[in-house]
């Protein structure tokens, strides 16, 4: 459950989940609306995968991401979005902190 809270605490990841609520999307389609580097996006994807909120399926050379949220998790996403929960810089996940430290 901690992984779910951690995943939902970041606005970029919440936006990714909201995009996936419409339909399954490829990694490229999901990265388009964000002005962040590919490694940062990959780190966000891995946090969401780790929390079991999304599912990745590789068909050919394309990875398609799909929503894998229970009803309660979706309600939690809505709540976090409405309240505007946000992580502070020093509380970022280790993966994102590593990416940021490398300056990617």
């Amino acid at each position: 459950m901690n992984a779910v809270f951690k995943a939902l605490a970041d606005p970029t990841r919440r936006r990714i989940l909201q995009l996936l609520q419409r339909r399954p999307m490829t990694a490229g389609e999901l990265a388009d609306p964000f002005a962040v580097s590919k490694p940062t996006m990959s780190a966000h994807f891995s946090v969401l995968l780790n929390a079991d909120l999304i599912q990745a399926e590789k068909i050919g050379r394309t990875i398609t991401y799909r929503l894998k949220m229970s009803v309660l998790e979706e309600a939690l996403l809505g709540f976090a979005h409405a309240v505007g929960v946000n992580v502070t810089h020093n509380r970022r996940t280790p993966v994102l902190a590593r990416v940021k430290a490398k300056g990617l």
Binding site: R23, D52, E57, I59, R66, L67, K68, M69, S70, E74
Partner: peptide
């Protein structure tokens, strides 16, 4: 609560992922 958490695999021929997701949600 767990219904939307078990999507059909995309590799399954008849699966339309968008409709499957909408139905399950």
């Amino acid at each position: 609560n767990a219904v939307p958490k078990s999507p059909l695999p995309l590799s399954r021929g008849a699966c339309d992922p968008k409709a499957d997701q909408a139905r399950r949600r």
